[in-house]
Design a protein around this nucleic acid. Structure first.
Lengths: 337, 337
DNA sequence: CTGTTAGCGCCTTCAA
DNA sequence: TTGAAGGCGCTAACAG
């Protein structure tokens, strides 16, 4: 008998030779699929372990006509800045990684700068992934609609709009905005401002819900302040705003980051939160609790959102037809309001 | 001539048939490699564009014996919590995504719970990626050392230690700790505390540098408070600490998140920052600027770190031998100290 | 229960 | 300049 200890084992062919069986037997043993003698299977598995051999995933996938990977795309349509620095997206990414790993998929991360109309189709045609999760539709809803019409395994985190055909999972932003409005009213606030970029569909929905829950007189006086997503940019906007002498008594911010910017900028003008100004954020990122004062905010259930995104995507991969889902937000009252 | 408009084009074979040439010609045309008549090349490229055809990356990679993907691994050795919620890692991830995309690599994200000694080798043997970037060595330096001895395309973000053979890119944590110490001394602080988990090598180095820059009397009185990485856990530790009546006049926190926890917990005991207590963080995450008061912190150049990680990895992939690099930190003085 | 064989889609050597 | 053919490592009929 030959000494096989030193032969490198790079493929099932190598292992088959050493084991004295055919490649298909090795394949069956290692994939645990197909009928095979128990002892043969065990013997080959042990041999594989001894030689530190594992099936080549790429070849396996090529043969199976799949890739075993799901893309998570972050389109940077509106904000070219450090989108990935947004704690909300990051938490989402973490949970997605967990969910996908659990189902045996790899997570392919990509930030895309949408250019023209073909970026998504081109990405899909490259065949690198079996399905696509998009976090935030940005200003790309037309592109998404077009692609969704012929490509099924596509789910989007974000606001749902009637006119869009693609599959979305997202917080009910309108309801969230309404929660913020009612809370500020309860606090006796009536001179209100909304901080956020309403070109982003999610933020527009928050704003819309906010307005809709306000009595007419308060609604008419709401100031709409165009704040960007990144910490630096939103802080600058807030600082300018207060420096210009604006003095609302209640602010609803489109995100926790923006809310923290508002609080910081207010503090620099000696505006006391919450005595003189109530601030409500959106997201409930982990750091919201550590803001000073701790942030009152509209909580999005990120873990649930990630689970649903993966769940719906897998259904579509299995050929099922599934629809959009909205998740109810809740308000978390802390000390900033 | 047949009408080819409606035939699906799924492979170079299909396109070759339509173009009336051989598959190798199509391959050469689409990869822009090998000699080929200019007009033929252009004609085939146009045909491909018309039919929305792109080369199948998986098959290409199988043939070329590579994967075109780099893994970014987050070992959750010490902290099982939402590691991915740490803003520092997230910012790093964003920059890595940019750098890798630019060089034509996909980024495969995976959070791993290290179990036993084989997790990294097993991951590598699966052959899913061409190289591995590990963010944070956690408590896995033995595993890393073993793997690094036989697997070259491996780079680690984190503290460099003489005894470890693997390639690290990281901030000079010792120097960073010293910067914090000197700053607190300048502020006239002498009753100091360090908040952080010194089982994490990076944090241990920060602590070491902190102590080393202190005069003997101050050094001997430094309190070491074991704070965890996650916001909730570190906040709880800080709250308990102050509730127990501890009253240092200077705190150096192992991370910005921990520093924000300390500030929040202090505020709840009516300890004024910076009047009664100076707090210095580490990282300079985007939100540090928006902390209240804005955080004095030791800045890590994340963008540069990400660029270097990818650069060194690519060198190794090209067969070059390259060594570890330390990045000098700098102190950013804001209002918390 | 196991072996033989034909590809998955692509690249590349060799020959024309 | 182009074509034919072999094979990357694996799976799944189909035979035996």
């Amino acid at each position: 008998m030959t000494d096989h200890q030193n032969e490198p084992v790079r493929s099932i062919t190598d292992l088959a030779r050493i084991a004295g069986v055919s490649v298909s037997t090795v394949s069956r043993a290692l994939t645990s699929k197909g009928a095979l003698n128990k002892d043969t299977r065990r013997r080959i598995q042990e041999l594989a372990a001894q030689h530190g051999f594992q099936l080549n995933v790429a070849a396996q996938n090529l043969r199976l006509g799949r890739t075993g990977a799901i893309a998570v795309l972050l389109p940077l349509g509106h904000e070219r800045g450090q989108h990935l620095s947004d704690p909300f997206f990051m938490a989402m990414l973490g949970f997605l990684a967990d969910e996908l790993t659990e189902r045996g998929y790899d997570l392919l991360l990509s930030r895309v700068l949408p250019d023209g109309e073909d970026w998504l189709d081109a990405f899909i045609r490259a065949g690198r992934v079996d399905g696509v999760i998009i976090i935030g539709q940005s200003n790309q809803s037309a592109v998404l609609d077009r692609t969704a019409s012929h490509y099924r395994p596509l789910v989007i985190w974000g606001a749902h709009a009637e006119r869009n055909q693609y599959l979305t999972i997202g917080t009910d932003n309108v309801a969230g905005g309404a929660l913020a409005a009612r809370h500020l009213l309860e606090r006796g606030r009536g001179k209100l401002a909304f901080f956020g970029n309403v070109a982003v569909p999610e933020f527009a929905a928050r704003y819309e819900g906010f307005l809709s829950a306000l009595p007419a007189d308060a609604r008419d006086r709401v100031e709409l302040v165009h704040a960007h997503v990144t910490p630096e940019a939103s802080y600058r906007v807030a600082a300018d705003y207060f420096a210009a002498g604006r003095r609302p008594d209640g602010v609803f911010a489109a995100s926790d980051v923006t809310a923290m910017s508002v609080i910081t900028a207010a503090a620099e003008q000696d505006i006391r939160v919450p005595d003189q100004l109530s601030v409500v954020g959106f997201d409930d990122v982990p750091l919201a609790r550590l803001s000073n004062p701790p942030l009152t905010t509209i909580r999005q259930d990120i873990r649930r959102g990630a689970a649903l995104l993966v769940e719906q995507l897998c259904q579509r991969l299995a050929g099922e037809e599934v629809g959009s889902i909205q998740i109810a937000p809740e308000i978390v009252i802390r000390e900033s309001s």
